[in-house]
Design a protein around this nucleic acid. Structure first.
Lengths: 156, 156
DNA sequence: ATATATTTTGAGAATCAGAATCAATATCAA
DNA sequence: TTGATATTGATTCTGATTCTCAAAATATAT
């Protein structure tokens, strides 16, 4: 059993636990989601609508399933500068923050224990107990080899 | 001429520069905005709609003027966890990040050169040139004296 | 001050991502 | 196979914000 199948199994177990049903749509969406790193509902919809089989998924089903994945902990919603929710496949990731290229929309994940420490210190200094945080760094790739094309929808 | 009048003057100069007109509505909105620290369009609308004078401002005008203030640099849009745009009166502020109480919606501003330095370092390490960033710390006030009531609209 | 050109306003329609509704369909356990 | 329950797709709805456009206001030239 390879890694992906293991993940699918994990998902199925969750469904059983929650008394939810395993449907063709959920399998399709999960499978596609696991192959990506970050994706929007719209992008996933376009990707799955194109398939020959003629199996059309409703956008609403994509949203529902993606949100289900988030409940289960396989995905996490992100809200970067554009106003579309990006679903982050966090199945094999630990906590991380993001570096986003404004030119090509590349998303790089990083972690910085040093920054986290300073954040905690800041919170404490102001009498706060921290629940979560959001750190996003926006800029652009210096290295043009990897920053040529806009990956998401082009702006008008 | 006190500080606020000076700010109003600054605004008027900007209008002249941009060949825009000084209207009663713009004055009203500016004046109210300058008295706040952070506010949403909706909140400002409610605040200004309640006045006796019977002068009703359209919500659209609030949005337009608030956005104008942002263009001029007097305000800045923020997007925290709820999906309403918060307009930050930054007239006499320098760059800062935010600490937000999930319980009472209090917003505390802070700056941390140490964190900024680490962010730059992170960006460089990944071959990025930074344009801007977003750092928001969410949690709750420990000190209950100052964290009693929800300030913004209560969640349903 | 008056006319004229230009901008702004208010009211409501449009937009857009995402959630809700609901009848028809699919899944699953007995 | 049945029947209870969950899910789907199609569509409508929502809520924040922007857009449209005729009417009103402001600035500028006379």
């Amino acid at each position: 059993m390879n890694a992906v199948n293991k993940d699918v199994q994990l998902f199925k177990n969750h469904l059983v636990q929650k008394r939810l049903k395993l449907t063709r749509q959920r399998e399709t969406i999960l499978e596609a989601f696991l192959k990506t790193d970050h994706i929007t509902a719209e992008e996933l919809y376009r990707k799955l609508s194109g398939r020959k089989q003629g199996r059309r998924l409703a956008l609403a089903t994509i949203y529902r399933t993606l949100n289900l994945l988030c409940e289960i902990g396989i995905g996490q919603q992100r809200h970067f500068d554009d106003n579309k929710t990006i679903y982050d496949n966090v199945l094999h990731k630990k906590h991380h923050d993001h570096l986003i290229c404004n030119k090509c929309d590349k998303i790089i994940e990083f972690e910085s224990p040093a920054i986290e420490r300073l954040q905690e210190e800041m919170a404490t200094r102001h009498g706060f107990t921290l629940h979560h945080h959001r750190l996003e760094l926006y800029g652009h790739c210096i290295d043009w080899e990897n920053c040529r094309d806009r990956q998401r929808a082009a702006p008008r």
